[in-house]
Design a protein around this nucleic acid. Structure first.
Length: 409
RNA sequence: GGAGGGGUUCCCGAGCGGCCAAAGGGGGUGGACUGUAAAUCCAUUGUCAGAGACUUCGAAGGUUCGAAUCCUUCUCCCUCCA
């Protein structure tokens, strides 16, 4: 079975420029393809990860991925799917981000220059000569056409700067450049990248009279149509210092029933018949599938050790297990808890469960905070030494968020 | 460059001198119900404080006892004209 069929079967594929040709190409040759990642933050998040999974599928099938970090394009800002112009980032931040993201991607794919390649489009975009560029590339684009593009639609009302208007051209040029440098013939991306991808493929046809193809994948959304991987704190990051493996695990442990099958197919490598078995169950049996999903995905992102720990921690908290070692925790100096103790709403802020005291207070008042499984009644309640057992106390927010308070030895 | 219309709290969107920390919806969070699901219902959603204070309505000034609401300048966006 070809990768194309695998991707199709698992529900990745959304749009293809030339289905027949792409399919044949993937069946008959080693194809160099690329996916771009703009370094708008110092880590990738779950929404990006689906692209990495795709690249792995492709690499496993013997194709050669080019992971393109958009150090150049990020200076422009992709208007796709945005209603407002993005904040402009400083050049040095972008450089650091680009480095961090390059490192992350390298953890998941072989990018040795042979089986896979890591590139940065700043290498060719930064020093473009405006006039030369306009003559060579700008002449190949029709503004009329561009204005029709889906990715600009939402911006026709809210305003689109010329800077951002050029994003499509830059991305198109990337494809041309990669085609020339590496003979890259295929660009993949999320479905929001469709316009940008065809821009590149068309540019290659027009400039060099060569064929190039594009293929887009479904975006990771919930059944409600919202982007998956967003939490109240923001994105779910791949960097474990930004989002702990336990948090990542819990997020997927808690996806809606209707999304489980889709996400298992997209974010894990489990065979389809196995997924089938997990999902075709009655009522709360589906929880097993969710656990598998959470475990498998955490394993892919953070490795087996971290996944095991997260699984154990989750079972300890929700399944009556014993091993509570891996639950998120924070150490405090014992002197804080002497006498009247230390106010719980302040602890909530310290351990990052709330961002302000007011929020902590509200949370307690609405009955959402528990100390050692007992609901905290007063918003000014404090945590004092008598609440600790073996130097530990458990704070819980709502039903699912646990945090251990440990006395520093 | 000219004419007109706008920038409101996480988002959309009312308000157009006091009753406005600002309607309504969305989203978030908590509670009830459950299966660590969905749906539903209730509460909550600026900060700090044992209920009173402090900072918000693009920015800076001004008028007024009092401004998100009026005036001035600046800035950004939209529409039409050039």
């Amino acid at each position: 079975m070809s990768v194309y069929d695998i991707l199709k079967e698992r529900g990745f594929i959304e749009q293809v420029t030339h289905e027949k040709e792409v399919k044949e190409m993937l069946e008959n040759e080693k194809v160099k393809f690329y996916i771009g990642f703009d370094p708008t933050a110092d880590s990738l998040h779950v929404g990006h990860f689906i692209q990495i999974i795709v690249m792995k599928h492709m690499q496993n099938a013997g194709h050669i991925p080019i992971a393109l970090v958009g150090g150049g394009t990020a200076k422009i800002g992709d208007p796709s799917g945005k209603t407002d112009m993005r904040k402009m980032l400083e050049n040095n931040t972008l450089d650091e981000n680009a480095k961090a993201i390059g490192n992350q991607i390298s953890k998941y794919l072989v990018l040795d220059g042979e089986k896979g390649i890591l590139e940065n489009n700043a290498n060719w975009l930064d020093n473009l000569n405006y006039i030369d560029f306009l003559r060579a590339v700008g002449s190949k684009f029709s503004v009329n056409r561009m204005l029709e593009a889906e990715c600009f639609k939402s911006r026709m009302q809210n305003g689109l700067s010329f800077l951002e208007f050029n994003y499509m051209i830059m991305q198109g040029y990337d494809f041309l450049e990669l085609n020339r440098r590496y003979n890259c013939k295929l660009q993949l991306g999320g479905n929001d990248q469709w316009s940008n991808i065809i821009a590149g493929a068309n540019l290659i046809r027009k400039s060099d009279r060569k064929s190039a193809y594009g293929l887009t994948f479904t975006l990771l959304t919930t059944s409600a149509g919202q982007k998956m991987g967003k939490t109240e704190k923001g994105a779910l990051w791949i960097d474990k210092d930004k989002t702990s493996p336990f948090e990542l695990f819990q997020y997927f442990r808690n996806v809606s029933d209707v999304d489980v099958e889709k996400v298992l197919k997209l974010l894990t490598f489990l065979p389809l018949d196995e997924i089938e078995k997990l999902v075709n169950v009655e009522g709360n049996e589906i929880n097993k599938a969710k656990e598998v999903l959470a475990y498998e995905f955490t394993k892919i992102v953070h490795g087996k050790d971290e996944a095991d720990k997260a699984l154990e921690a989750a079972r300890a908290l929700f399944g009556g297990g014993k091993n509570e070692e891996n639950i998120p925790s924070t150490e405090f100096d014992s002197s804080l808890f002497e006498d009247d103790g230390y106010e719980i709403r302040k602890i909530l802020v310290d351990i990052g469960i709330c961002s302000t005291f007011s929020e902590g207070k509200r949370l307690i008042q609405s009955g959402g905070v528990y100390l050692n499984d007992e609901r905290v009644k007063e918003f000014y309640s404090a945590l004092s030494l008598k609440d600790f057992k073996d130097g530990e106390a458990m704070i819980r927010k709502g039903k699912k968020v646990y945090h251990k308070i440990i006395i520093k030895k």
